[in-house]
Computed example of a mutant assay.
Amino acid sequence: MVWTPRVTVASVIEREGRFLLVEEEDNGRRVFNQPAGHLEEGESLLAACIRETLEETGRQLTPEAVVGVYRWQHPASGLTFIRVAVTGSVSEPVPDHALDADILATHWLEPRVLADDPACQRSPLVLRCIEDYLAGRRYPLGLLVEV
């Protein structure tokens, strides 16, 4: 069997010290995550970020910078994930846009909510991306090259 990491994208969106997060169910528990998901075949990383943000929040993302590229291995499943996190701005909710069925709600939360309760995070990547954003980590979108 060939080892293949799962490629995911996430959007780190901040307004006035609060971050746009989605509430979803993961193995029977309610957790918070950035608008995030898997890269689809033939899709660019930025297109995936824009799509996932719209699907999960009903908002249009305008990407501005890369926050980071992360590798994480799920302790229970052993699956490895490569996450590309971008930041940018989002529109107000698109009228009448239905969110993905897996999304319970969207929230603008302060980072301390996640830091105070690590179990409320979908994965440790959620808070790490926010911490890197708060530390000023920004890389040009040109870092994401499509060949």
Score class of each variant (00 low, 15 high):
Ile50Asp: 01
Gly28Glu: 05
Thr87Val: 08
Glu40Thr: 10
Glu25Gln: 11
Thr87Ala: 14
Glu25Arg: 15
Val67Cys: 07
Val86Leu: 06
Arg59Glu: 09
Ile82Glu: 03
Leu20Glu: 07
Leu114Thr: 03
Trp72Gly: 03
Arg30Gly: 02
Leu61Met: 05
Leu20Thr: 01
Thr80Asn: 09
Val90Asn: 04
Pro75Val: 11
Gly42Ile: 09
Glu56Tyr: 02
Arg83Leu: 15
Ala101Ser: 14
Trp108Ala: 10
Phe32Cys: 04
Thr87His: 03
Leu99Glu: 06
Ala101Phe: 14
Glu56Gly: 00
Thr106Ile: 08
Leu21Asp: 01
Ala101Tyr: 13
Val90His: 00
Ser77Val: 11
Ser44Arg: 12
Tyr70Phe: 13
Gly58Asp: 01
Thr53Val: 06
Thr53Cys: 07
Ala76Asn: 11
Glu56Ala: 04
Leu45Ile: 12
Leu20Gly: 03
Leu21Ala: 01
Glu23Asn: 04
Trp108Phe: 15
Gly58Tyr: 02
Gly68Tyr: 02
Val94Glu: 13
Pro95Cys: 11
Glu52Ile: 02
Gly28Tyr: 03
Gly58Ala: 08
Pro63Gly: 12
Leu45Cys: 00
Val113Phe: 13
Thr80His: 10
Ser77Arg: 09
Ala36Val: 01
Leu21Gln: 02
Ala48Cys: 14
Glu43Asn: 04
Phe81Ala: 07
Thr80Ala: 14
Ser77Ile: 08
Ala105Arg: 12
Ala47His: 12
Arg59Gln: 03
Ala98Ser: 14
Thr106Gly: 02
Val84Leu: 05
His38Asn: 09
Leu109Met: 09
Ala98Glu: 15
Asp96Phe: 14
Asp102Cys: 12
Glu43Thr: 05
Leu39Cys: 05
His38Gln: 14
Ala101Leu: 15
Thr57Glu: 04
Pro111Asn: 02
Ala98His: 10
Ser89His: 14
Val31Leu: 10
Gly68Arg: 03
Glu55Ala: 12
Glu40Ala: 13
Ala36Arg: 02
Glu56Gln: 14
Ile103Asp: 00
Arg59Ile: 09
Glu40Lys: 13
Gly68Lys: 01
Thr87Tyr: 00
Ser89Gln: 13
Leu39Asn: 06
Thr53Tyr: 00
Phe32Trp: 06
Gly58Asn: 07
Pro93His: 11
Gln73Pro: 03
Thr106Pro: 01
Gln73Asp: 11
Thr87Met: 13
Ala101Pro: 10
Gln60Trp: 11
Trp108Glu: 10
Val31Phe: 10
Glu52Lys: 04
Pro35Glu: 04
His97Leu: 12
Asp26Gln: 14
Ala47Phe: 09
Gly28Val: 00
Thr53Glu: 01
